[in-house]
Design a protein around this nucleic acid. Structure first.
Lengths: 192, 192
DNA sequence: GCTTTAACGCAGAGATCTCTGCGTTAGTGC
DNA sequence: GCACTAACGCAGAGATCTCTGCGTTAAAGC
């Protein structure tokens, strides 16, 4: 149940093993669903002994949570300097990440109870998604604007995106993203 | 993988077994999480042979989906005749159902891929949650009002509720529900 | 009440997972 | 290079799951 897996000896073999395991986990989740994934299956796919997985991660849920936590947000789009554009860009990016094969599965895994007493994963996942939007809001505030609160962005943009991806609702695309942002910005206005 | 389980012989023993199994599944999911639930465990709790569960449901996911599908929406609050009140009432009711022990777990199970080719469960779950709000909107329309569209209700009320319950965000209570409804109704107005 | 048969219980084989001890490999620091 | 040791691979025991044949029970229809 130690999902750190990167503290003591991050380089060389350990790193290769972790990368192989992560890749295998992503592939298996994508092709058979998170329910049908087991640690021995991931180990076989990764060319690694299953005892390693039991020792380093302990459970499928912990492994998937670790994978989700390390999915690099490296592709963060740069700030354009315009709140509407920035929000649209980040929302579209969130939608893309979420729509990737297994994207929702990893979201579920990280959010699932039973890991770290039910709250660490939640907190981390929420922090990461929040971190995507906070810079855009901060930048707007520094320009003297009064952007909507982060909580409002979560309610009005992120939540609908997650909901619609989970339910595979059609029409959840960039145009819909722009509509969400427009409705938020052009509505009664960000009062908080 | 037949999640109907109620077509041929619904009365008597079969019905008792199904009820016992459903109760056991709910209890186990609530106390140890959906991940740690297995068919033999449910069978033991229900006082039923596990072969019955394998034959009738085939997998934990299918069983949980069946349970979710049969969670009676019998406690539907009556329509008050006022759109705001009706939406608040139904949103609060949705929040209550979702906050029940294992509520989110059953939502996840029903939404999980791998059952019925990935879409029947989704469709049914979405239909059920939609059915909660549609009567209120229809009633308002019959009174000559122009209520928001169902899609908008999903985006603005249901999605945030699910999102916040999943992430255990504090302050997700009746007051928050009223705020969501107020922001929807008192905003730029229901144009669709 | 009798027949039919769907659904259940029992038992067990086989596969798979879960976990641990022990020796080996290879990254880290000197 | 060399010592140290974290991390890995191997092997296997034990538990658990998964599934199937077969006989039994009891609901459904007459």
């Amino acid at each position: 149940m130690n999902a750190d897996a990167s503290t003591k000896r991050p380089g060389g073999r350990s790193g290769r093993v972790r990368a192989a395991v992560h890749d295998a986990a992503v592939a298996l989740v994508a092709e058979r669903g998170a329910d049908r994934v087991t640690l021995p299956a991931v180990a076989r796919r990764a060319g690694v002994n299953s005892s390693t997985l039991y020792r380093r991660w302990g459970s499928v849920a912990a492994l998937l949570a670790d994978v989700a936590g390390h999915r690099d947000d490296a592709g963060a789009p740069p700030l354009a300097g315009d709140l509407r554009t920035d929000l649209e860009c980040r929302a579209a990016w969130t939608l893309t990440e979420l729509s990737r094969p297994g994207g929702i599965a990893f979201f579920r895994a990280e959010v699932a109870p039973g890991i770290d007493e039910r709250h660490a994963g939640l907190r981390e996942c929420l922090d990461r998604v929040s971190a995507r939007f906070r810079p855009a809001l901060d930048a707007a505030r520094e320009r003297g604007e009064t952007p909507p609160s982060l909580e409002r962005v979560l309610d009005r943009i992120v939540a609908p995106l997650y909901f619609r991806v989970v339910f595979s609702l059609p029409g959840t695309d960039d145009g819909y993203v722009r509509a969400l942002v427009a409705e938020l910005l052009d509505g009664p206005g960000g009062d908080g």
